[in-house]
């Protein structure tokens, strides 16, 4: 029984810590702030969070602690953030899929509008790639193959923005694709490289070194312009298709967070956005800065939610 008592004590202590009361704030922040990253340590989203946490900590003089709560494509950490008190002491780095697609697909334990936007941080275009030896040379080829006997593609996971947006594109061309989860971006590229699937559809930077080595051919970037790190890769637009798709990360807070708290975070983030420090840190990690303030990011979230609602309903993936 010694053990049970001890366990209960440990549990009580943990619960007490988790539920630490939100005291009335004199001047935000007066205690450490935690930033929940709904993915494991080491992912690009984690790196982004750590860069921002470091700069916010410098700005405010209290610790901004990054906490990784991974699982279920970001849903677990996002649900955790949705349950935290709306006092500005728990922030979330939201990702496209977890924030705007998952609540439409299932009871995720949160809704998109449980959160208010603070700032978009990074945005990455998504691109189509095939193995170097593949007979597919263009988006046209892929559509033709899909119509004639079917084509397969890999993305980081079911319900990811990559999966959803590509399925939508295929449907708009009157084709249907079979989706295979790569269980992460690198896994999806591996499936394209090994020839298990016809093509992969993941964030463009993932391809950079393999494309340079000629092991993989990027045949369509879903953006208005070519990207610098993939000089030979044409865009969808170049090939006559009006199709853009990207993934983004951004900082959000619980809905109901006091206005003055939101305002001081907003001011700090705007200041950080134009700092040289952010630029140099992003450059080190090869992140593409895509800062948007609270209003801009709010619009991105709303647009993404609308789009996902429509597509997921069409695909029969909505709950």
């Amino acid at each position: 029984m010694v053990w049970l008592t001890k366990t209960r004590f440990a549990l009580a202590a943990i619960v007490a810590l988790a539920l630490a009361p939100a005291t009335a704030h004199a001047q935000y922040p007066e205690k450490p702030v935690q930033i929940i990253v709904p993915f494991g340590a080491g992912d690009a989203i984690d790196g982004t969070a750590r860069v921002i946490a470091q700069l916010l900590q410098k700005k405010f003089g209290v610790p901004f602690v990054v906490r990784n709560t991974a699982g279920a494509g970001g849903s677990v950490g996002t649900a955790e953030a949705a349950r935290a008190p709306a006092d500005g002491y728990t922030l979330l780095v939201a990702s496209t899929g977890a924030l705007t697609a998952r609540p439409i697909m299932a009871d995720a334990g949160y809704e998109t509008d449980d959160f208010v936007a603070l700032a978009q941080l990074v945005e990455t275009p998504i691109a189509v790639a095939v193995a170097a030896g593949s007979p597919l040379k263009s988006i046209e080829d892929i559509i033709a193959k899909a119509k004639d006997g079917g084509a397969t593609f890999a993305t980081p996971g079911p319900g990811s923005s990559q999966h959803v947006s590509m399925s939508d594109f295929a449907a708009s061309q009157g084709a249907k694709l079979t989706h295979i989860s790569g269980n992460g971006g690198k896994g999806a590229v591996t499936k394209a490289l090994s020839g298990e699937v016809d093509f992969s559809f993941v964030g463009a930077p993932v391809y950079a070194s393999l494309a340079k080595a000629g092991q993989i051919r990027v045949i369509g970037v879903a953006a208005d312009q070519q990207v610098s790190y993939l000089p030979d890769a044409p865009t969808f637009k170049d090939q006559g298709f009006d199709f853009n798709a990207s993934v983004w990360f951004g900082l959000v807070a619980r809905k109901g967070t006091p206005d003055d708290v939101l305002a001081s975070l907003d001011a700090a983030l705007k200041e950080i956005a134009v700092s040289d420090e952010l630029k140099s840190l992003y450059a080190k990690y090869s992140y593409t800065d895509a800062f948007l303030d609270a209003d801009g990011f709010g619009k991105v979230i709303a647009a993404s939610t609308e789009q996902n609602k429509r597509i997921l309903n069409d695909l029969g993936l909505a709950k």
Binding site: A70, G71, A72, S75, V76, A79, E80, A106, D107, A108, G109, Y110
Partner: peptide, 9 residues
């Protein structure tokens, strides 16, 4: 079973 945390397995 309705637990959001169980979604992660």
């Amino acid at each position: 079973f309705g637990f959001p945390a169980m979604q992660a397995g």
